[in-house]
């Protein structure tokens, strides 16, 4: 799939993005831009506005003010489907998988493929095609993958996260948003998930950027190239990893600026 692109425009640009819930400013006048192949860590304490920012980008939340540009093109998302159609894939913190479905059914959740001809007119699913494509995608992944036919409810937290992230990667797109990909995971499982994220980005041939949200700085540090830090809804720092230290980042997160 090709998208409309404006030469030299950043892949993603956000200008003055705000989200207010009554008098609470969950997100307050946030601006930044993102280039292709960047993996950006979005850090901040609980309630700093990380999830709100991601939801604004993924269409799950409609911002109170501000603009979102993709390749210089202004976009307004009022539903998750609209954001996805523009190539923005999201892995949510609370794991948007359906427990009672197997992996192919979860990959195609909301995007089920129907058969050709009259069966398609009746909305009859093409299970075989979905399974075939999911299998091909899964086999190309570096992660140790759970059984394709197993229902999600039989899987561990780490396996579920691997499935959720690979679903986002499966649909490709321009921007991948990962909301706490390693939360609630053990050390080993978190490492496996991070390894997979790294491999996924380095192996993409298309223009793609990724925003990884976490409150665990160690996890983000190992895979990202740049750090954005939110505090109380405001963007307080935007630092390339090579030009900062963990101490400085922690200081920004907690607000204890040196």
């Amino acid at each position: 799939m090709t998208y409309v692109t404006v030469p030299d425009a950043p892949l993603l640009e956000i200008r003055g993005l705000s989200k207010h819930y009554g008098t609470i400013r969950a997100l307050d006048d946030v601006s930044f831009s993102l280039d292709r192949d960047e993996i950006v860590g979005l850090l901040g304490d609980n309630g700093a506005g990380k999830s709100t920012l991601v939801k604004c980008l993924s269409g799950a939340v409609i911002p109170t003010a501000g603009e979102v540009y993709l390749h210089g093109d202004r976009k307004v998302f009022s539903t998750p489907a609209e954001a996805r159609d523009e190539g923005i894939e999201t892995v949510y913190q609370q794991l948007a998988l359906v427990d009672i479905f197997d992996i192919p059914a979860n990959f195609y959740l909301g995007r089920e493929v129907v058969r050709d001809g009259w069966r398609g007119m009746l909305g009859i699913l093409n299970r075989r095609l979905m399974r075939k494509r999911a299998r091909a995608a899964v086999e190309a992944l570096p992660a140790r993958f759970p059984n394709l036919d197993a229902d999600i409810e039989t899987m561990s937290g780490g396996q579920r996260q691997v499935v959720a992230i690979s679903r986002a990667g499966f649909w490709g797109g321009r921007l991948l948003l990962l909301d706490e990909p390693t939360a609630a995971l053990g050390v080993k499982e978190a490492a496996a998930v991070l390894e997979m994220i790294g491999a996924m980005v380095s192996s993409t041939e298309t223009d793609m950027a990724m925003i990884v949200i976490s409150h665990n700085m160690e996890h983000v540090w190992s895979i990202c190239t740049r750090l954005l830090i939110l505090r109380q809804g405001r963007l307080v720092a935007d630092l390339p990893k090579s030009e900062t230290t963990r101490q400085e980042v922690v200081a920004h997160i907690t607000g204890a600026t040196a």
Binding site: N147, A150, W171, M200
Partner: peptide, 28 residues
């Protein structure tokens, strides 16, 4: 609705192991 095809070419050559056997038993 987006009906973009998946790109199976993405990803490097490393193969995953054919699934955890425990999950298979449990699904059965």
């Amino acid at each position: 609705m987006n009906t973009r095809d998946a790109d199976p070419g993405r990803g490097n050559g490393e193969r995953g192991s054919p699934g955890a056997p425990a999950a298979g038993v449990m699904s059965k």
